[in-house]
Amino acid sequence: MKVRPFEEVVARHGATVLRVCRAVVGPVDAEDAWSETFLSALRAYPDLPADANVEAWLVTIAHRRALDVGRARSRRAHPTDTVPERADPTADPAHRDPDLWPALQRLPDKQRLAIAYHHIAGLPFAEIATLLGNSPDAARRAAADGIKTLRKHWIEDEKP
């Protein structure tokens, strides 16, 4: 099978990649994700096996690049008219309920960190897995087990 020039690949699959990007990040950031997709694809294209499913390969890259663009957008600073003098201490769940910290401290480290990273910081499990040195499934499981244990501790602490 003859390998097509990259320009033909872009022409043939560009619309599909753009639809994937729009579905993942919306119309505002879709073009950035589309561009990132084809930049990544261009770098890897020479090593792509001749019998590879190019469209599936591009859709996989598009999905990942769109997620990256969406994460980058969520981390950008947003201008505001007023800046608070200091952070609102009631935003911290442990401050709203001082009994929460002792219950969190009793959790194993990976469970406590998975809960903090996901439910408090809002990180996806793939990033949590990198931080904890395990797989995304293990990070998801640690967070779920931690919440289950936390609920159990919470109920025990509430008993008179």
Rank of each mutant, 00 (worst) to 15 (best):
A56S: 13
P79C: 02
E31Y: 07
A33Y: 03
R76A: 14
P49S: 12
R75W: 13
N53M: 05
A41Q: 09
H78Q: 12
R43P: 00
T37A: 03
L39M: 12
T60K: 15
E55L: 08
H78I: 12
S40Q: 14
A66K: 09
F38K: 03
V54A: 14
A72Y: 07
R64Q: 12
A72I: 00
A56D: 02
R43W: 07
F38N: 00
D47H: 12
S74N: 13
A30I: 09
A77Q: 11
Y45D: 09
A56P: 01
H63W: 14
R76Q: 15
A50W: 11
I61S: 03
A44L: 06
A62C: 02
D51F: 02
W34S: 04
F38S: 01
P27N: 13
D32Y: 01
D29Q: 07
W34I: 09
H78T: 13
A44P: 00
A52N: 07
L42T: 04
A72N: 09
A66P: 14
G70N: 08
A66W: 04
R73E: 11
R76I: 01
D68Y: 07
A66Q: 11
R71T: 13
D29A: 13
V69I: 13
D32R: 05
Y45G: 08
F38C: 02
G70V: 03
P79I: 03
A30T: 09
T37M: 03
A23D: 14
A66F: 01
H78F: 10
E36K: 04
P46Q: 06
H63N: 06
P27T: 10
H78R: 11
A72H: 12
H78G: 00
A50H: 10
A50E: 13
R73S: 08
A23E: 10
V59C: 11
D51S: 11
N53D: 15
D51V: 06
V24I: 15
W34C: 04
R76C: 11
E36V: 01
V59Q: 12
L48Q: 07
A30H: 08
S40M: 04
L48W: 00
A44G: 00
L39R: 12
V28N: 12
A30P: 08
V69H: 03
L58H: 09
